[in-house]
């Protein structure tokens, strides 16, 4: 039965892949490719692979496949993460959004928060992590992030990246027309008579100034 080669289990942090013990890697790869092409997975859902289940190289290959479809694949035991998340939780204001992910790289903790909806006026996201919004950020909405901000949609609200001093943080949006844009300790505001572009743009700090430039994606 091809269905049983890869089992998908819903866990608190996302999805956990479980492989049949006698399956070959080719079969696993094919099975996952098929599921992905059918749109089985929701974009932005973290997918976990237990490090003991697969050889490291194979797991890395899968990770790349998932990345192609906009999914984040992690080769680690999700059990380890529960504690990490619990420690961070009290600092979060918005609890209605997707659970943040935690990536451990040595001692540095990097996180990403995924928001799968449009942020409307009056709604606010405040996090130490980076933020990915799949939707618009409407006027009156606010994002304050310790890391970078990526908006797959229109950005019309107030966005603040690197809010805790990270000068390398960037802000990307399909249409970058915010009321106010802040990175670290710098502020820029939309020109009163703006020339609008249809292209995605990125804002970052260059030579002590906020610079906005078009990008391809």
């Amino acid at each position: 039965m091809s269905e049983d080669i890869v089992k998908i289990k819903g866990i608190k942090q996302g999805l956990l892949l479980i492989f049949a013990s006698d399956s070959k890697f080719d079969e696993i790869e094919e099975n996952i490719q098929k599921k992905l092409s059918l749109g089985f997975f929701t974009r932005g859902t973290p997918v976990y692979i237990h490090p003991e289940d697969l050889p490291k190289d194979d797991a890395e290959t899968l990770k790349k496949i998932f990345a192609k479809y906009g999914l984040i694949c992690k080769i680690e035991n999700p059990e380890n993460e529960i504690r990490e998340i619990k420690q961070e939780e009290p600092q979060r204001e918005e609890v209605s959004f997707a659970k943040p992910e935690v990536k451990v790289e040595g001692e540095k903790v990097e996180e990403m928060m995924v928001v799968n909806k449009t942020l409307r006026g009056g709604q606010e996201i405040r996090t130490k992590a980076s933020v990915l919004v799949c939707g618009n950020v409407n006027p009156g909405a606010q994002i304050i992030a310790g890391g970078s901000i990526d908006i797959r949609g229109k950005c019309l609200g107030v966005v603040h990246a690197g809010a805790f001093g990270n000068q390398d943080a960037v802000i990307i949006a399909d249409r970058l027309l915010p009321t106010q844009i802040r990175i670290a300790n710098l502020v820029a505001r939309a020109p009163d008579e703006g020339d609008e572009t249809e292209k995605p743009e990125r804002a970052s700090i260059k030579d002590g100034q906020i610079v906005i430039e078009p990008i391809e994606r």
Binding site: S96, K117, R120, G121, G122, Q123, P139, G140
Partner: peptide, 13 residues
């Protein structure tokens, strides 16, 4: 329109 946007957010909540 701004207030309507806010209300839609509140309704979603």
């Amino acid at each position: 329109v701004r207030d309507a946007d806010k209300i839609i957010g509140e309704l979603g909540r």
